Amino acid sequence: MTPASIFFNTLIVIASPQPGQAGIDLAYKTIKVKLCYAPISQKDREWRKTEDDLAKDKTCQHEIVARPCRPSNNTFTWTIKKDIPTATYFIRAYAYNSADEDVAFGQTTDYHKTTSLLEVHAVSGCTVPLDIASICLSVFAIASLFGFYLLVKKRARASLNRVT
């Protein structure tokens, strides 16, 4: 696979076989493309650990697309979801046969997973104006609480003085 490139917040992955590699094989029935954690984002995180046994491998937890394989025009568009955590990733495509067994894969990085990596910064949803507004409203709420408390105490004293 060729390296990934970023163009105006769009990731374009172009995959083509190199000499000596298999291209689109007739045995490929399904293609699954996944977002995979790079080794730097796996450090001290056992839940992202790479295993040689694909059934136990936790590297590629985020599926991008899964669809039938076609000999040409396998183009698709995917938007990074809000639940994708901040990390460094690469993209891997798996080819499955009709028995749903993986028969081939390719990825946007080298064997050591150190080149052509993609950094994703999660969106928290909080912005500076939103933080400022929440602080102001919190201060207003506390001040109102004390103000009403003092007002009630003052009225209670005034009514107690009128009675005596």
Results as ranks from 00 to 15, higher is better:
Gly106Ala: 10
Ala93His: 00
Tyr96Trp: 12
Trp78Ile: 09
Ala93Pro: 00
Ser72Glu: 11
Asn97Tyr: 07
Thr86Cys: 02
Phe90Lys: 06
Ala104Cys: 03
Lys82Tyr: 04
Ala104Val: 00
Ala104Tyr: 10
Ala99Lys: 13
Ala104Gly: 09
Phe90Leu: 12
Tyr94Ile: 05
Ser98His: 08
Ala99Gly: 08
Thr77Asn: 10
Phe105His: 14
Ile84Ser: 02
Ser98Leu: 09
Glu101Leu: 10
Asp102Val: 15
Phe90Val: 04
Ala104Ser: 11
Gly106Leu: 06
Phe105Asn: 12
Thr86Asp: 01
Thr79Gln: 11
Asn97Met: 08
Phe76Val: 12
Ala99His: 13
Thr77Lys: 11
Ile91Thr: 02
Asp100Phe: 10
Thr86Arg: 02
Asp83Thr: 09
Tyr94Glu: 15
Ala95Ser: 13
Ala95Trp: 08
Thr79Glu: 11
Ser72Asp: 09
Phe76Glu: 03
Glu101Cys: 06
Tyr96Ala: 06
Ile91Asp: 00
Asn73Gln: 14
Ala104Lys: 04
Val103Ser: 01
Tyr96Arg: 09
Lys81Tyr: 01
Asn73Gly: 13
Thr86Ile: 02
Thr88Gln: 09
Phe76Asn: 05
Thr88His: 07
Asn97Trp: 06
Ala104Ile: 00
Tyr89Met: 03
Phe90Asp: 04
Val103Thr: 14
Thr88Leu: 05
Ile80Trp: 00
Tyr94Arg: 07
Ala93Leu: 10
Ala87Ser: 13
Ala93Met: 13
Asp102Trp: 12
Ile84Val: 15
Asp83His: 10
Gly106Met: 00
Phe76Thr: 11
Thr77Trp: 06
Tyr96Pro: 00
Lys82Gly: 07
Thr77Ile: 09
Asp83Phe: 07
Tyr94Leu: 14
Asn73Tyr: 14
Asn97Gln: 07
Gly106Val: 10
Pro85His: 06
Trp78Phe: 10
Ala87Val: 01
Ile91Cys: 03
Thr75Asn: 15
Tyr89Lys: 04
Trp78Glu: 01
Asn74Phe: 04
Ile84Trp: 02
Tyr89Arg: 03
Tyr96Asp: 01
Tyr96Val: 02
Ile80Ala: 12
Asn97Pro: 03
Thr86His: 04
Thr86Met: 01
Asp83Asn: 14
Ile91Arg: 00
Thr75Lys: 15
Phe105Ser: 12
Thr79His: 08
Asn73Thr: 09
Asn74Pro: 00
Phe105Val: 01
Ala99Asp: 15
Thr77Tyr: 07
Asn73Phe: 15
Pro85Ser: 04
Asp83Ile: 06
Lys81Ser: 10
Ile80Val: 15
Lys82Trp: 05
Thr77Gln: 07
Tyr89Ala: 07
Phe105Lys: 09
Ile84Leu: 09
Asn97Gly: 09
Ser72Gly: 05
Asp100Leu: 11
Glu101Arg: 11
Ser72Thr: 14
Asn73Glu: 14
Ser72Ala: 15
Phe76Ala: 05
Glu101His: 10
